[in-house]
């Protein structure tokens, strides 16, 4: 991101923080597709991804006044998206537990991310990765964040981000070779 881009982002955030609808929409347009792609891969459900992204934007918009301008908006925002996905996944796990305790035969099947764009083998391999590996892999290879940004987004060290990325790719290759 160049200095000019950074200044543009600062101006946009200032306008959005003051409630300028156009600025809010512009922030949304800039980040919604990547946020949705991330949420879709993490939650593996279109409905959950939509809920996570919607919630993340509302939280971010309401907290814009306290946003530190020296950080990049995307880093801060993707952290909120990841956290919302964690919350939703935890909620789904509890629901599943409750459903298992009931009669599974009577319950409708859940949406597990019928995504026409995802190659089935790739999606299946992704699902087998540990959560931490999957997050780093998606942030780096899918969203194009560098290790410094990933470290800030996930609250881990830069070295950990690097090492998890390479392990994630190795694991993915192994799974897909089976």
């Amino acid at each position: 991101m160049t200095v000019a881009d950074r200044n543009d982002e600062k101006r946009l955030i200032r306008a959005a923080a003051s409630g300028d609808e156009q600025a809010l929409r512009s922030l949304y347009d800039t980040h919604c597709h990547r946020a949705y792609a991330l949420a879709l891969r993490l939650t593996r459900s279109e409905a959950d991804a939509e809920e996570a992204v919607q919630d993340a934007f509302l939280r971010a918009f309401r907290a814009l006044g306290g946003f530190r301008a020296e950080a990049r908006f995307s880093t801060w925002f993707f952290r909120i998206v990841v956290n919302r996905c964690h919350d939703l996944l935890a909620r789904r796990q509890k629901q599943r537990q409750r459903e298992t305790d009931l009669d599974e035969q009577l319950l409708p099947s859940r949406d597990h991310g019928q995504d026409p764009l995802a190659a089935p083998r790739l999606q299946a391999a992704l699902e087998q990765l540990p959560v931490g590996y999957r997050e780093v892999l998606l942030l780096h290879d899918m969203l194009g964040l560098d290790h410094r940004e990933i470290a800030r987004t996930l609250g881990i060290r830069r070295g950990t981000s690097k090492s998890q990325l390479h392990k994630a790719r190795a694991r993915m290759r192994e799974i897909m070779s089976q």
């Binding site: 409630g19 929409r25 990547r34 918009f61 764009l117 290879d141 969203l143």
Partner: peptide, 24 residues
């Protein structure tokens, strides 16, 4: 993995956000 990022967020997400957004 890079290609997985090519999805489009449905417009209904903004439609759900807009009424609750802190618009001046």
């Amino acid at each position: 993995i890079q290609r997985l990022g090519g999805v489009q967020a449905p417009e209904r997400i903004w439609q759900a956000i807009r009424p609750a957004a802190p618009v001046r």
